[in-house]
Amino acid sequence: MSAPKRVKRAISGWVVLNKPYDMTSTQAVGKVRWLFGAAKAGHAGTLDPLATGILPIALGEATKAVPYVQDGTKIYRFAVKWGSATATDDAEGAVIATSDVRPEQAALEAILPQFTGTIMQLPPIYSALKIDGERAYDLARAGEVVELAEREIRVDSIALVSHSSEQSVLEVSCGKGTYVRSLARDIAEQLGTRGHVSMLHRAAVGPFSDADAVTIDELEAALAEERDGFIRPVAEALHGVPELRLDPSQAAAVRHGNAVLLTGAGAPVSVDDCWASFAGVVLATGYVQFGQFQPRRVFN
């Protein structure tokens, strides 16, 4: 006889995973979904297989708040190995160019301000960006010529953590769409040498950081009845977004997707982006227009 089919659970919340090395983001989501028996799961921002660090995994209704996390600021700690460029701009790819130049610490620190603010960046050809419906990395692996356009990105800060003749470690705080592999490549070229990312760790995504993270090993070691203690509330993804606390009648209307008039002395007249709650639970994300909360996305 075959084993009984596992019943999927309608659970909602965030598992802030410290993704291990050499695991894809899709594999990580699948593992976490299986461990929790969740009916639905997704992630807020892909991490390369060779990268470690914060991969926020959304269970159930939390998947509706994924864009808020994806759009949040990210912090990466990464190492640049000097003297060689690779096809993938990280340690996975074949070496395609070399240089004997090893930058001095002072020279590296002097050019870092050039890579802050709003800058243009050429993404790696081995990336998940789509070209005519195909992933760039699939085209590159098939031997096709991949041409990507430069994109505008935001780098809030970049600082040197440690330096040696062979490798330097940096920490960057940046916005959505920034490729650290491209950053390492461009910094090396600006210094008249070649370089690629040899280590990459994501220390924060939006409201989630290393301090919040749990490992696969910790989840596997926990008893099934204890594992739910690692799930963080759906509302944590909405940190920094204005909250509207509704009364029972307003909450009932919003649960059905209806707009509600906000009352009281402090009620806002216009808000571009906000979320409504009742008893601390997320009801919907939306906006306020003419004193009414208009739901865009309703949470069950």
Rank of each mutant, 00 (worst) to 15 (best):
K5R: 14
K5C: 02
K8V: 02
S12I: 00
V16Y: 00
K19W: 09
P20Q: 08
T24A: 06
T26N: 15
K31G: 02
V32R: 08
F36P: 05
A38E: 03
K40V: 06
T46Y: 11
L47W: 12
I54G: 04
A58W: 01
A58P: 06
L59C: 01
G60M: 00
A65K: 00
P67D: 09
P67K: 09
Q70F: 05
G83F: 13
A85Q: 09
T88Q: 03
D89F: 15
D90P: 14
A91V: 15
G93Y: 13
A94C: 03
I96Q: 06
T98P: 10
R102L: 07
E104I: 06
A110Y: 06
A110W: 01
L112F: 08
P123E: 15
P124V: 11
P124Q: 14
I125L: 03
Y126L: 07
S127D: 15
K130Y: 11
I131E: 10
R135L: 10
R141S: 05
R141H: 06
R151I: 05
R154L: 13
D156P: 01
A159S: 10
S165W: 12
T178E: 02
Y179D: 12
D186V: 08
A188R: 09
V197W: 07
V205Y: 01
S209K: 04
D210L: 12
A211I: 00
T215R: 05
I216G: 06
L223N: 10
A224F: 09
E225G: 00
I231N: 04
I231P: 09
R232L: 11
V241S: 03
P242Q: 08
R245N: 14
A251G: 04
A253Q: 15
R255E: 12
G257L: 02
A265S: 14
G266Q: 14
G266P: 01
A267I: 08
V269K: 10
C274T: 10
S277G: 15
S277Y: 04
G280P: 14
T285G: 02
G291I: 11
